[in-house]
């Protein structure tokens, strides 16, 4: 068995397993009862995708794909930060509005 075939078999197997794991994370993302479960699953899919992109460096023998892995890691980090910040903000805004409504209703009742 030549070494190229051995590498191809190992990397193909790893790629298949990672694909299944990413699909499992997608199912968790769809099922997840709370918004934080979904964001967590997206974070996980990002991690697995970075591993897959780094794997293609070996599979195709192209060095520049390592840069793409780095950029994808940054993008995935930014996505998780933004999503969690945005959803925290939405929740707090809604809470604040509810409080304003409740206060207004209380004042009307007092009057």
């Amino acid at each position: 068995m030549s070494i190229d075939l051995a590498y191809k078999m190992l990397l193909g197997f790893a790629l298949g397993v990672l694909t299944l794991l990413a699909l499992a994370c997608l199912i968790r993302c769809i099922l997840g009862p709370r918004i934080s479960d979904r964001v967590l699953a997206i974070n996980q899919i990002g991690t697995i995708t970075v591993i897959m992109v780094a794997l293609t460096v070996l599979l195709l023998g192209e060095g520049y794909l390592a840069d793409i892995a780095l950029v994808y890691a940054m993008l995935s980090f930014l996505a998780v930060i933004l999503l969690s910040k945005v959803y925290t903000g939405i929740y707090q805004e809604r809470k604040h509005e509810e409080e304003l409504h409740r206060n207004a209703a209380g004042e009307e009742a007092d009057a």
Partner: peptide, 10 residues
């Protein structure tokens, strides 16, 4: 940040 989101909204 994710944990803070979870703690705030739950």
């Amino acid at each position: 940040l994710l944990c803070r989101l979870e703690i705030t909204t739950d």
